[in-house]
């Protein structure tokens, strides 16, 4: 099981890197070995990416003391403004 934190930090970016590397390997005109293994690299990246996008993003830490954005309109509406 891949944790959301691991997915966001390593697994997702690694999958994208593999897909990009696979495309570059496939189309580069210099090293035959890379061309020969490019499809496998792309396929691993593609499968990894599809797993990665189905893992929910990690929950953001909530600051208990944060009261959120201050709205003047709300403050006035609640009677906090000058009468």
């Amino acid at each position: 099981m891949i944790s959301p934190q691991f997915n966001q930090k390593y697994f997702g970016p690694a999958s994208i890197t593999l897909m990009v590397a696979g495309i570059v390997f496939l189309c580069q005109p210099w090293v035959e070995f890379l061309h020969a293994w490019s499809v496998l690299v792309m396929l691993i990246g593609l499968i990894g990416f599809n797993i990665s996008v189905h893992i929910p993003a990690p929950e953001q830490a909530v600051d208990e003391d944060d009261t959120g954005p201050v709205s003047i309109a709300q403050t006035v509406g609640m009677g906090g403004g000058h009468d």
Partner: peptide
């Protein structure tokens, strides 16, 4: 199929 895999990879990267 090789071309299809390549196009799928490009699409996924761009959509991301």
């Amino acid at each position: 199929y090789i071309i299809l895999i390549m196009v799928l990879c490009i699409t996924n990267i761009y959509v991301k």
